[in-house]
Simulated scan of single mutants.
Amino acid sequence: MIENLDPKQAWALLQDNPSAVLIDVRTAIEHSFVGHPPKAIHVAWKEFPGMQLNTAFVEQVQQQVADKSAPVLLLCRSGQRSVDAAKALETNGYQHLINILEGFEGPLDENKHRNTVGGWRFHDLPWQQS
């Protein structure tokens, strides 16, 4: 089963559970230039050009997170790629998967802008840029 937590709940879980791991599934460009939570492990679900599926995604996560019972939190821009990535990990035996609702930038507002109505940055959680 894949759990859903909002960004503040996800941050609290990461603080309270030292075995929890945060995987940022966005593209390398998003991770570096838009920003990411501290200590987030970057493993792209899809990558430029063309947003091609990373066929080595599960293998790359397994290299970072060997313990399939550890809490694995997944973060993308708005919460969709992370769900797909979580499903792939669930199929491969990961047992405690958590999708971070709203993602890093949150949904679009009425002006088609992000970071104004939800998301990791909107909630003033720690983040950094490369």
Rank of each mutant, 00 (worst) to 15 (best):
N4R: 01
L5N: 02
D6Q: 02
K8H: 03
Q9H: 01
A12Q: 15
L13Q: 05
L13V: 09
L14E: 08
L14H: 10
Q15W: 03
D16C: 05
A20G: 13
A20Y: 10
A20T: 08
A20D: 10
V21S: 04
L22N: 07
I23R: 10
I23E: 00
D24V: 14
V25I: 07
R26F: 11
T27M: 12
T27K: 05
A28M: 03
E30G: 13
H31K: 04
H36E: 06
P38S: 04
K39R: 12
A40G: 02
A40H: 06
H42E: 04
V43M: 04
A44T: 02
W45T: 11
E47C: 01
F48A: 09
F48I: 15
F48D: 11
P49R: 06
M51F: 15
Q52K: 14
T55D: 14
A56T: 11
A56N: 09
F57M: 15
V58Q: 07
Q62C: 05
Q63A: 12
Q64S: 02
V65P: 02
V65H: 06
A66F: 05
D67N: 14
S69P: 03
A70N: 12
A70Q: 11
A70P: 03
L73Y: 08
L74Y: 06
L75G: 13
L75R: 00
C76G: 09
C76H: 05
G79S: 03
G79C: 06
G79V: 12
Q80M: 12
V83H: 03
V83G: 05
V83C: 01
K87Y: 07
K87Q: 13
A88W: 08
A88M: 15
L89P: 06
E90D: 13
N92M: 12
G93Q: 11
G93N: 05
Y94W: 10
Q95E: 15
H96T: 11
H96V: 05
H96S: 04
L97P: 10
I98V: 13
N99W: 01
I100W: 00
E105P: 00
E105C: 04
L108T: 12
D109F: 09
N111D: 12
N111K: 08
H113E: 15
H113D: 08
H113Q: 15
T116V: 15
T116A: 00
G119W: 03
H123C: 05
L125T: 05
W127R: 11
Q128M: 15
Q128C: 09
Q129F: 01
Q129I: 14
